[in-house]
Every structure is written in structure tokens, then in C-alpha cells.
């Protein structure tokens, strides 16, 4: 396995979608290639950073708010 192969299949590796033999050669490459290990770790950090900076500071919309919203839509519709 080359560094290019590793980068190509990185997401499948992290999602645990690789067959056992490919996963083993992936892990073996990581054990002996510090640049690829650094690539994997910074890739994971990137996903973490992206998720965090885009998260809504007020948190997710609570389920009861849309419920009230739909009720408001329905009652507005009945009035029309």
C-alpha cells in the first residue's frame, strides 16, 4: 500500500468499510509511515473542527418548537 492508496481509502477506513485484509495492510502502513499517521490525525481534526464551528450556538431545534409551528400553520390554514 502506498501513501496515495492510504489517502484514497482513508474515509472507508475510518468508517470501518474496508475488508479485513485491506484494513490490515492499512494499519501496517500507518505503523511505519509517520506522514500518513499525521495525515489521518489532521483529517480527523478537520472533521471535528468543521462540525464544531458550524454547530448552532443555540443548540439544535427542540422537537416541541416545530410541533407548535405546525399547529400555527394548521390553524392559519383553517382560518383561510
Amino acid at each position: 500500500m502506498t501513501c496515495r492508496d492510504l489517502a484514497d481509502f482513508l474515509m472507508a477506513y475510518l468508517d470501518d468499510e474496508l475488508p479485513a485484509d485491506q484494513r490490515a495492510s492499512f494499519s501496517a502502513h500507518l505503523d511505519e509511515c509517520p506522514p500518513c499517521l499525521a495525515y489521518l490525525k489532521t483529517y480527523e481534526e478537520t472533521v471535528k473542527l468543521g462540525k464544531s464551528v458550524c454547530s448552532d450556538p443555540q443548540g439544535p431545534v427542540p422537537d416541541d418548537v416545530p410541533e407548535r409551528l405546525i399547529q400555527a400553520i394548521l390553524s392559519a390554514r383553517e382560518q383561510n
Binding site: 502506498t2 501513501c3 489517502a7
Partner: peptide, 23 residues
């Protein structure tokens, strides 16, 4: 990422100096 003909990194990546949490 860019690679050499043999599949090695053309510009080998390194770890970032700071963790996502601290950033």
C-alpha cells in the same frame, strides 16, 4: 494532496501544533 510517481507524499504532512479543542 500531491504524490510522487512511487505514491509517496510529495509534501509529507505533519501534525498540527495545536489540537482542535484548543483551536
Amino acid at each position: 494532496p500531491k504524490y510522487l510517481e512511487d505514491g509517496h507524499h510529495a509534501d509529507p504532512p505533519s501534525l498540527w501544533q495545536r489540537s482542535a479543542e484548543s483551536l
